[in-house]
Structures are given as C-alpha cells and as structure tokens.
C-alpha cells in the first residue's frame, strides 16, 4: 500500500541525513555529530514506541495499558514543564494538575460525545497531541505570570493596598500572560492548511487515507490542541498566582534567578 515504505525505504531516507551532514561538513558548521546522534536517537525512540504500541494494541487489556501510557506521558510532560520554568515554584504539581484537567476536559469531550471510539488506537495518539502541543504554552504562561507578578510588584501591592483581594489584584497580569501564551496557538490554528499541512494529516494521507477523511481527523485534532492549550494555561496561570500570594492577600517575596 501507499504508506508502507518498509525497512528499505527507511534506510534509503537516511540519504537525506547524509545530505544534512554533508552540508555541515562543507560549511564547517560543526553540527555533523549532533545531526547523526539526533537522527539515530529519533529512530531508536520511534522504534521502541512503535514496538510497544504494537504489543499494546494486541494485548487483551489494551485500553487499561493505554491509560497507564497516558499517565506516564502526563508525568513526563509535567517534569519537562518544571525543568523549563525552573524559577516558578511548584511547577511540577501545577503541570500535573494542568494536564490532568486538560485530559478530563478534552478527552472527555472527544470520547464522551463519541467523536472517536474509546480504544487504545485513538486514546494514545490523541492524548499525545493534547499533551505535546500544549506544553510550550504551559511553560510560557507559568513563566510569564511569575515574571509579571515579580517585576510589577509595586503595582500589584498598590492594588492590594487599595483593599483588592489577591485574585482581583492579580487579574490584569493573568489576563496578559494568558493572552501572550495563547495567541501563537491561535495564529497557527489560523494558518493551518495554507502554510503547512499538519503532521497528523500528512501521516494519514501518506498512509493511504482519502484526503477528505484525513482533513476531518486533522480538524478535530486542531480543536483538541486549542482546547487543551486553553485549559492547561488557565490551570497553570491560576495555580502560579495562587502560589505567589498568602491566604491573607500578601504577595510573597520573589527573587530574581541568575538566568532570568
């Protein structure tokens, strides 16, 4: 069939890595090693994932295993978020809460309303899109809320001094952080189809699915990503701002980290 490239196809496609390495050597970019390493690593990771999925789909408890898979994915994502927003306190827990909430909301809609059948073949890739594509905005919003409240401390405290609750005092800064984090996501949703053909659709078409069918799946996935980003960023923004105020509406001291 169309999409079946086989091992020969894969090895042949390595010629393209060769092209990249050749360019690096020719222009003395010094990137050959990392190119080879990243290509090898990508292949190894994908082979392991593919193998695992194949075993998993054949298992009698494939759905149960898929949920465990999702759990592991969410944990890894939360850890990545924590590492990329190091100065923000409690980012691991907040990331976990954010992706868990997003999973309930987005997967709840897609499976609950029967858009996709609830089975391992649908759950794992959709959860992957849900987590993977919301990660950047999640990191961005966490850092942004933290930086806004830290850098505009005198403004925030002036609001508190007027008798505003910490929620009211933080609201304008949350709003701007959420807008900043979500606008790129909205832009890429707008540009889809015109500027680029997204991965899910490309994959489906290459694998021989009719383009119109692929488009329907892709559109649903885009909405999943948008909904997920909105959910995770909101959870993280509210969480970070809650963490930065005391119960009696004081702003906690924040230090500027060396790399900020």
């Amino acid at each position: 069939m169309t999409g079946d490239i086989g091992w020969t196809g894969l090895v042949t496609s390595l010629v393209l890595v060769g092209v990249a390495v050749a360019i690096s050597l020719w222009r003395r970019l010094g990137l050959e090693q990392s190119m080879v390493w990243s290509a090898a690593r990508a292949m190894a990771q994908l082979l392991v994932v593919g193998l695992l999925l194949q075993v998993l789909f054949r298992s009698r408890h494939s759905l149960g295993w898929s949920w465990i898979w999702v759990l592991v994915m969410v944990t890894f994502a939360a850890e990545t978020v924590r590492r990329r927003a190091r100065e923000v306190p409690d980012m691991f827990v907040l990331g976990l809460a954010a992706f868990a909430t997003s999973a309930v909301v987005t997967l709840g809609v897609l499976f609950g309303l029967g858009v996709f059948p609830l089975e391992a073949r649908a759950l794992i890739p959709l959860a992957g899109m849900m987590v993977g594509n919301a990660m950047t905005s999640t990191v961005l919003v966490g850092r942004r809320v933290f930086e806004e409240l830290r850098d505009k401390r005198s403004e925030v405290e002036a609001r508190l001094a007027l008798g505003l609750s910490s929620r009211d005092a933080a609201r304008p800064y949350l709003r701007s952080a959420l807008r900043t984090a979500l606008i790129p996501q909205i832009e890429s949703t707008k540009a889809v189809g015109i500027v680029f053909l997204p991965g899910a659709m490309t994959g489906l078409i290459l694998a021989g699915v009719a383009p119109m069918k692929a488009v329907l799946v892709q559109a649903a996935v885009m909405y999943l990503v948008l909904g997920s980003a909105a959910t995770t960023t909101t959870v993280v923004a509210l969480g970070v701002s809650r963490r930065l105020f005391t119960r009696d509406h004081r702003l906690v001291p924040m230090t500027r980290s060396a790399d900020a």
């Binding site: 002036a158 001094a161 007027l162 008798g163 505003l164 009696d248 004081r250």
Partner: peptide, 15 residues
Amino acid sequence: DPLRLRRRVGLVAQR
C-alpha cells in the same frame, strides 16, 4: 479582615 483593614488604613507608595 486584611482587605477591610487596607481600606481603612490606606498606603501611598514612595514612587
């Protein structure tokens, strides 16, 4: 209540 206290005791900052 800190919120009511802050309305009774107002603060004007240095800058």
